[in-house]
Each structure stands twice: as structure tokens, then as C-alpha cells.
Nucleic acid binder design. Structure first.
Lengths: 131, 131
DNA sequence: TCTTGACTTAAAGTATACTTGAGGATTTAT
DNA sequence: ATAAATCCTCAAGTATACTTTAAGTCAAGA
């Protein structure tokens, strides 16, 4: 089990120290050891948890849901159904997000084509395209 | 050019009235006419703009960037390069989001499989799978 | 040893995007 | 005619997720 300073963790995840303080304060990061002088000592469990936090955050999960996940995970046997449900729901959410993004990307790309048409028309002093 | 009450618009876009008030207050919706008694009268330009606002919001664009887009659009000729740049940048952003979501979806699906394995192990009183 | 950089706490502040509440006016349906 | 629905303004409040500030302690290199 390796040890890490707050700087090492902050650098690894490109997070400011304050965010790590904050995550600890709200209970998202737990059991952070301290050196004799009171400095935080992180370990591989925190690495593990931060990997999950980053993944969940990247996919738009709220901090309160992320916390719920870890709470369930701490007593996995009695919450296995909730955990599976949470993960399956989140999988669906991601799927919906991807679908929406793909659809909206079409709109944006259409706008790009439209505005490029306008640019050409401006440059050549010809008629503007219709949208 | 059709006219719409705030209720019609709110229903169409499934937004509370307050959000439409807010969008007007911050200048995202402009030139909203009023009836004699002071009630808002929206028209097809607002429909058009709201379609774009919803699209931009769905793809994670900030309100300040959405405002910037409409500001540029109001004097398209002198801002055509900025508009194209904004849209192309946004297209890239969406592309990145999709990539990230697809990658993270793998992680979530792996978790689902893992926890389902655990559920089975609990039910059959057998050994837990490794992650 | 001294200075610089890393770290601490606790409270207050910030950014974004709305939402709610109070109090009143108007419109529509019965 | 009256009740219910819809709308108005403006200020204050809320939720989420941090960030900043202040004032100080600790550790490591020159």
C-alpha cells in the first residue's frame, strides 16, 4: 500500500488541493491518514476511489449520487441490488447523453456548413444560402 | 408570424415561466412584445431562438457562450469568422464529450457486470469475483 | 540557519443557472 | 358576477460545486 502527499494526488488528477479538502469535508474521500504534523497521507484506496469519482463526474453524476454509491458500496451485501440499480440507471443516462449529443452534433455541423456558405457568399459577393 | 403566450412557450419547451423571464432578463431572449396589459407575446423568432438555446444547452454550452453566439449572429457579416470558429470549437467539444462518454460507459458497464457477479455469489454462497 | 515551498484549518466568497415568494392585475370560464 | 387561471414585477433565496482568504505550522534545500 503506497502513500501519497496531497500534492502527488493533486498533480495526478489535475485537481487543486482545495478540491481534495472539499471532497474530504463532504465525506467523498474518507479515512485520510495524517502524518505526525497533521499532513494528509493518501493511499491506494484513495487512488481507487478518485478514479471512480472522476469517472462518475465525467459522465455527469452528481456528487450526492456519487456519495450514495460509495455508501452502498461500504455494505455491498445488503445493498447489492441498489448498487446494480444505480449503475444500470447511470448506464442508461450515459446512453441517453450519447444519443442526444450525436443528434445535436448534427445540428451544430449543419450550422457550420451554413455559416461557411455565408462566408463564401460574403467573400464572393453572391447570394446568401438558405438555412 | 404566429404569436404565443408565455404558457404556450413554457409548455412547448417544458420550461417554467420563471426560466423564460430569466432568459429575457439576461438578454438571451430579446424583443419580446407585450400586450396592452403588459403580458409577454412571443413569436416565431423566439421559437427559433429557443430551439437553438435548447440545442446549445443540451450540448453543455454555457449561457454566456450562447449569448455570445447570438450577439455575433446579430451582425453576421462582421463576425462570420467568430461564428464559424465558435461552432467548430463547439463541434470539437461535443466530439470530445462523446468520446469520453463512450469510454466511461465501458467502465460503468464493467461495474454492472462485476456487481452482478457479486450478487450471484451472494445468492449461491460462492466466492466473490475479482474486479 | 534561513528561506522557500508545502501544508494546515475555518470561514467566507464565487460562479452558474435558475427558483421562489409577495403582492397585485387581468383574463377566462361558469 | 364571480371564481379560477394566468400573468406581472422585483427582490431575495436556492442548489451545486467548488475557490479564496487569512493566519499560521512544518519540512527541505542552500
Amino acid at each position: 500500500m503506497n502513500n501519497y502527499s496531497i500534492k502527488e494526488i493533486a498533480d495526478k488528477y489535475k485537481l487543486p488541493h482545495s478540491t481534495l479538502h472539499y471532497y474530504e469535508e463532504i465525506g467523498l474521500l474518507e479515512n485520510v491518514d495524517r502524518s505526525e504534523s497533521g499532513r494528509r497521507i493518501y493511499n491506494d484506496c484513495h487512488i481507487c476511489r478518485l478514479d471512480a469519482i472522476i469517472c462518475f463526474k465525467n459522465t455527469g453524476m452528481s456528487i450526492s449520487d456519487i456519495k450514495k454509491f460509495f455508501t452502498y458500496e461500504q455494505d455491498l451485501e445488503s445493498h447489492i441490488d441498489e448498487i446494480i440499480h444505480l449503475m444500470e440507471k447511470h448506464d442508461e443516462t450515459i446512453q441517453k447523453q450519447i444519443k442526444l449529443l450525436l443528434a445535436e452534433q448534427e445540428h451544430i455541423q449543419r450550422k457550420v456548413r451554413y455559416y461557411k456558405g455565408i462566408k463564401k457568399a460574403i467573400e464572393n459577393n453572391t447570394q446568401w444560402p438558405s438555412y
